[in-house]
């Protein structure tokens, strides 16, 4: 049995951790060969080329972290017509292009967690915050930003002053962070729900000698943020466990490929993780984001 995992792009700590989790699952399930692949640039067109070769190889199931929720649909439909079980994980595909979607966490939870972290980081629990996102077209980030905006009324002490985009490029993210610091001299927190943006923002604050005055939080990998936790520019940040995510994606895809039925409303066991329940749209959120701080980051940095 061959299960294919299609990442958004290869070459990041995050996709590496997903691969690790997938390998654990395939070893545990037995007789499962995992194919871990992805395009050279994070584009839908690149993923389609990869998907076409997977369809040709007649794999049993495909789990894809989509670069675009709509553009992959026709290709994935064709895969399903040829008997391949398709799920999306991490970043969703529209319902008609997959059987179910395995979300690392619900958008609302991510938004709420980011705001809680911002409040915890802000001196005195109040002040101005700004969001530094990935590209303006990143679907995941946009959903989280929308969730943050709708959760804002529950945090009246926080004032969202700007949302800027670093395009997941280190230099642009760094420059946008510097511009935020200049535009809002009394900024308290930068929230960056993207692993490249959060590192660049932390570096910018350290370089401007604003450590202790402005803080960075958001979503990132412990291994990439350990240095900034130690430097003091980041107090705490959040992420789900990408190893668990990879593990769950492979386990779920294998279940489907072995003939299990699932869909909206169903609950599926996921080995050591427990189980996941799919809602009416066929989305199964796994867990609340895990919070990393000075106490546990070093330990997790060794893993992912």
């Amino acid at each position: 049995m061959r299960i294919a995992i299609v990442a958004k792009q290869l070459g990041s700590g995050y996709s590496d951790a997903i691969r690790k989790g997938g390998e654990q699952a395939s070893a545990e399930l037995g007789k499962v060969q995992m194919i871990f692949t992805g395009p050279s640039t994070p584009t839908a067109e690149g993923q389609i080329e990869v998907l076409n070769t997977l369809i040709a190889q007649q794999v049993n199931a495909i789990a894809v972290a989509a670069n675009d929720p709509d553009a992959l649909v026709p290709t994935l439909k064709r895969a399903m017509q040829r008997g391949i079980k398709v799920i999306s994980f991490d970043s969703a595909v529209s319902p008609e292009g997959r059987i179910v979607h395995l979300a690392p966490s619900s958008d609302a939870l991510v938004g709420e967690t980011c705001l809680q972290l911002a409040q915890a980081a802000a001196p005195g629990g109040k002040g101005k915050i700004a969001i530094l996102s990935a590209s303006a077209t990143a679907t995941n980030q946009n959903a989280w930003i929308a969730a943050m905006q709708s959760a804002l009324p529950r945090h009246p002490d926080l004032q969202l002053v700007a949302t800027v985009y670093g395009d997941d490029l280190s230099d642009k993210s760094y420059r946008e962070a510097l511009a935020l610091l200049k535009r809002f001299p009394d900024l308290a927190v930068i929230v960056a729900p993207t692993s490249i943006g959060i590192v660049a923002a932390a570096k910018a604050i350290e370089d401007e000698h604003l450590t202790g005055k402005v803080f960075v939080t958001g979503l990132g990998l412990p291994s990439e943020l350990l240095g900034h936790i130690n430097a003091g520019s980041v107090k705490s940040f959040a992420l789900w466990n990408p190893i668990d995510l990879g593990y769950s994606a492979v386990t779920l895809a294998t279940h489907l490929a072995r003939g299990a039925k699932t869909g909206p409303g169903a609950t599926v066991p996921l080995g050591r993780i427990g189980s996941v329940t799919f809602d009416q749209a066929g989305t199964g959120p796994m867990s609340k984001p895990f919070i990393f701080d000075g106490a546990n980051t070093a330990e997790f940095a060794k893993i992912f």
Binding site: T43, A44, E45, I48, A71, V73, P74
Partner: peptide, 17 residues
Amino acid sequence: LLTSRLSSTRPTLAAGW
């Protein structure tokens, strides 16, 4: 052809082509 194949449009269409 590409738009029809993707059945959707985003500003990143055909990036790097």
